[in-house]
């Protein structure tokens, strides 16, 4: 999967550079997040600006990351959701689980407060 990872201090920014987040590539995202948790990171921002399609496996990978971050007293926040991707979070009620920000700068700033 094409994934950009940048340590921004207060949180690590993961930018998913794929059009689809589905059963074919969501395992890669999950594994990359696990690697960051093992390195001691606990605050993540996942930027989905490039993603125009997410399926249940993609949602599952993000839920896995959220639960891992929470268990380490951290958080996983989302940024830059396209309209139809956001609808998927609403349909599955996951918009009540994740903090969702307009862009990654806002999401990163929320970790610095």
């Amino acid at each position: 999967m094409n994934l950009q990872i940048e340590d921004k201090g207060a949180a690590v920014l993961l930018s998913v550079m794929e059009e689809r987040l589905d059963a074919h590539n969501s395992g890669d995202l999950k594994n990359q997040m696990l690697k960051l948790f093992e390195e001691g990171k606990s605050n993540l921002v996942v930027d989905l600006q490039a993603v125009r399609f997410v399926d249940s496996s993609g949602l599952g990978a993000l839920v896995s990351g959220f639960k891992n971050a929470s268990s380490r007293n951290g958080n996983l926040k989302l940024a830059s959701l396209q309209l139809q991707v956001k609808s998927m979070f609403e349909l599955t009620r996951l918009h009540r689980v994740f903090e969702i920000y307009t862009d990654s700068n806002e999401a990163l700033a929320s970790f610095q407060q």
Binding site: S56, L59, G60, V63, S64, K67, T92, R93, R96, V97
Partner: peptide, 12 residues
Amino acid sequence: HPLDEHGRGIYL
């Protein structure tokens, strides 16, 4: 449940 990691496909 929102925090389940699997099993949403058929529901969708």
